[in-house]
């Protein structure tokens, strides 16, 4: 049962088409989401984290499409399902959504429909996938809310989202996502809109779910601190590519890509006071329509050399599951020590 892959993504390319221009939002990424493990996807805004999630859920906007590559869901009872070949809002895709792969979103303030009660929205999800009576579904919704640590669930179940606080809403979202016992939970920056104390509670809850239900979690974040706390595996994304991936231990202990290293350096450390040196990454992300020719990070990189501008570096296996796409990774890793 160990390291059982639930979703494997291979060489996925998702492009956006606007005004006759093509934005290669995801440019060939591969990853495995494993049962009972948390895969953290890290990166700056606009690097393709959310598009990856939307691609897996087939929830991409109309002007974008999966150009190449594979997304395969390894179902226990139905064999391998090729998600990339399914019709976007077709019956098969819909039966996967919610039941096998559920998603929670960044902003719980806007992610719940304001005109229906929280209970109603959870019941809708349960009844969309399972043939149960309204009463049964409501009883399950109640239990879910209780399990997610919502106080007075009997009263809360009939309340509207605006009567919930931000943290409570995200708990309700998670309750909804977990209502059909999904095999995979995709969380797209689930705590960005919440304050820090609530963040910790939400992550604790997600960690508990992972252990109790053996759910695979794909957590999208830009917070390195969160990665350190929760991740089993990490994938660092930059401009639509995974530039470094591996187990959390490997990536965080000995980062092999200058970008990962820079991300780790740019976290302020609590208790060090206001005078500590925070090293932000210089420059900003390039225009996706005017990309650098070689390594996407080269213009901002301290290690950049002429060779970096020639082509995107190949994947280098550095041992174990650790992968780095940088030609000077040995120097980078040596520097850290």
């Amino acid at each position: 049962m160990q390291d059982q892959t639930v979703i494997s993504v291979k060489n996925l390319k998702t492009y956006f088409y606007t005004n006759q221009r093509c934005n290669k939002a995801i440019n060939g990424i591969s990853m495995d989401i494993k049962r009972g493990k948390t895969l953290c996807i890290v990166g700056e805004s606009g690097c393709g984290k959310s598009v990856t999630a939307s691609s897996i859920m087939q929830l991409l906007p109309k002007l974008s499409r999966i150009e190449e590559g594979e997304i395969i869901y390894h179902s226990e009872d139905r064999g391998d399902i090729k998600i990339h070949e399914l019709e976007r809002n077709g019956k098969e895709m819909r039966s996967l959504r919610g039941q096998d792969i559920a998603m929670i979103f960044q902003d719980p303030m806007t992610a719940l429909n304001p005109v229906y009660t929280v209970g109603w929205q959870i019941v809708e999800m349960i009844r969309a996938h399972e043939n149960v009576s309204k009463k049964e579904a409501k009883a399950r919704a109640l239990k879910l809310l209780k399990d997610m640590g919502i106080p007075y669930p009997e009263k809360r179940i009939d309340e509207y989202p605006h009567q919930f606080s931000g943290g409570m809403r995200q708990r309700a979202m998670i309750a909804m996502a977990m209502s059909c016992n999904p095999k995979v939970l995709i969380a797209d920056e689930p705590t960005t809109a919440l304050d820090v104390t609530i963040q910790a509670q939400i992550f604790e809850l997600m960690d508990k779910l992972k252990k109790e239900y053996d759910t695979a979690i794909m957590l999208i974040t830009h917070d390195m601190g969160v990665v350190c706390e929760l991740a089993d595996d990490v994938a660092v994304m930059y401009m639509g590519n995974i530039i470094e991936s591996g187990s959390a231990r490997e990536v965080l202990k000995s980062p092999g890509h200058p970008y990962t290293k820079a991300l780790l350096k740019s976290i302020p450390i609590l208790g060090k006071g206001a005078n500590q040196d925070i090293n932000p990454i210089k420059g900003s992300t390039p225009d996706p329509f005017n990309r650098p020719t070689g390594c996407q990070f080269a213009p901002r990189c301290d290690y950049a050399c002429d060779k970096c501008n020639e082509a995107m570096p190949e994947e280098n296996q550095v041992g174990g599951t650790h992968m780095v796409r940088c030609i000077r990774f040995q120097e980078v890793m040596a520097d850290g020590k």
């Binding site: 819909r94 039966s95 998603m103 719940l112 429909n113 999800m125 979202m173």
Partner: peptide, 15 residues
């Protein structure tokens, strides 16, 4: 264009 519409789609309910 609201986000809860995306949530609704992510639940797997018919269009």
């Amino acid at each position: 264009n609201k986000e809860y519409i995306r949530t609704a789609r992510s639940k797997g309910i018919p269009e």
